[in-house]
C-alpha cells in the first residue's frame, strides 16, 4: 500500500438536492456470453464527487467503469452519463467521449509521437485547435501533471509513472467533465505509484468528477467521497471512506483484512 502526502486537502462534496448525477447506474446488467459480470448495479456519482470502485479481481469493477464511456455495452437497465442515456436511440458515442476521459493501466500512449503531440492530437483533430492553441493547451496540462520539461520527449524515454502522467494529461487536454481511471497504478512500483496518485489527488482537490478503479485502499479512503465495494457483480457496500474501518459485511471485512 502506498502512503502519499498531499498538499491540498480534498473537501468531500455532498450530493446537493436537485443536482443531476454525472453518472447514474440503474439496475445495470452486463454479460459476456453466458457469464453475467454485472448483476444489477445501482450507483450515482454527483458532479464534483470522487467515487472509488474497489473489490476483488472479477468482481466487475473494471467492467462497470468501462460501461461508463461505452467501451462495454450494457445488456439491461439504464445508464446515464453527463445527461446522456447510453441506451437512447439517438445516443452518440463520440459526443459522450468528448466529455469523458479515461486512463488505462497500460498507459496506451502513441509511441511514434512526442509527449506534446500525444497530448494535442485529439484536441487538434477532434476539436479543431490550431498549432498555437494546442501548444498552449499542452503547456497547461503538462504543467498540471508536472511534466512541463518533457514536452519534446518520446514515451520510450519516460518512466512508467511519467508515461501514466502523460496519459492523464492527454485526457485532460480534451477538457473532460468526468475522468475515469482504470487501475492506473497497478503496473507501477510504490514510488512511481505515489507520483501518479499525487496528480490524481490534485485533480480531485480541483473539483474534477472522477470514478476510479483502484487497489490503493489508503488512497481510496483519503480521496474518495464515495467508496463502492463490489462483489460478484453487485454493489456490496457503499459509503464514505470510513466504511473501510467498520465493514458491515463479512466479504468486505475479509477483503480489507486481506491487506490488499
Amino acid at each position: 500500500m502506498t502512503v502519499i502526502s498531499m498538499n491540498s486537502v480534498h473537501t468531500p462534496v455532498a450530493p446537493q438536492d436537485g443536482a443531476q448525477p454525472m453518472v447514474s447506474f440503474r439496475d445495470v446488467h452486463k454479460s459476456f456470453g453466458a457469464l453475467e459480470v454485472l448483476k444489477g448495479i445501482d450507483l450515482d456519482v454527483m458532479p464534483g464527487q470522487v467515487a472509488a470502485l474497489i473489490g476483488r479481481s472479477g468482481s466487475g469493477k473494471s467492467t462497470a467503469l468501462r460501461c461508463i464511456n461505452g467501451l462495454e455495452k450494457i445488456n439491461g437497465g439504464e445508464l446515464t452519463v453527463c445527461g446522456r442515456n447510453l441506451r437512447a436511440r439517438d445516443f452518440e458515442l463520440r459526443e459522450l467521449r468528448k466529455e469523458v476521459g479515461i486512463v488505462f493501466q497500460s498507459y496506451n500512449l502513441f509511441p511514434h509521437l512526442t509527449v506534446e503531440q500525444n497530448v494535442t492530437l485529439a484536441p487538434r483533430k477532434v476539436n479543431g485547435l490550431d498549432a498555437a492553441e494546442s501548444r498552449a493547451l499542452a503547456a497547461e496540462v503538462l504543467e498540471q501533471v508536472g511534466l512541463s520539461d518533457k514536452a519534446l520527449s518520446y514515451p520510450e524515454q519516460l518512466s512508467g509513472g511519467q508515461q501514466q502522467r502523460v496519459a492523464i494529461a492527454r485526457s485532460l487536454a480534451m477538457r473532460p467533465k468526468l475522468m475515469l481511471f482504470d487501475e492506473v497504478t497497478s503496473a507501477l512500483d510504490p514510488e512511481l505509484t505515489g507520483e501518479v496518485l499525487r496528480v490524481i489527488g490534485k485533480l480531485a482537490a480541483g473539483g474534477m468528477t472522477m470514478v476510479l478503479v483502484t487497489h490503493e485502499m489508503a488512497f481510496a479512503r483519503q480521496v474518495a467521497d464515495l467508496v463502492v465495494y463490489m462483489h460478484q457483480g453487485r454493489v456490496w457496500e457503499a459509503g464514505k471512506g470510513t466504511m473501510l474501518d467498520d465493514p458491515q459485511t463479512v466479504e468486505l471485512r475479509q477483503f480489507v483484512g486481506s491487506g490488499l
Partner: peptide, 25 residues
C-alpha cells in the same frame, strides 16, 4: 489494441485514427 482503444476514447474518428496512429506506425 490498447492504443486504438485510447484513440477511440479520445473521440477520434476511424479515419483520424488510421492516418494519425495506424499508418505511420
Amino acid at each position: 489494441k490498447g492504443q486504438l482503444e485510447a484513440a477511440n476514447c479520445l473521440a477520434m474518428t476511424r479515419r483520424q485514427i488510421f492516418w494519425s496512429i495506424q499508418l505511420p506506425q
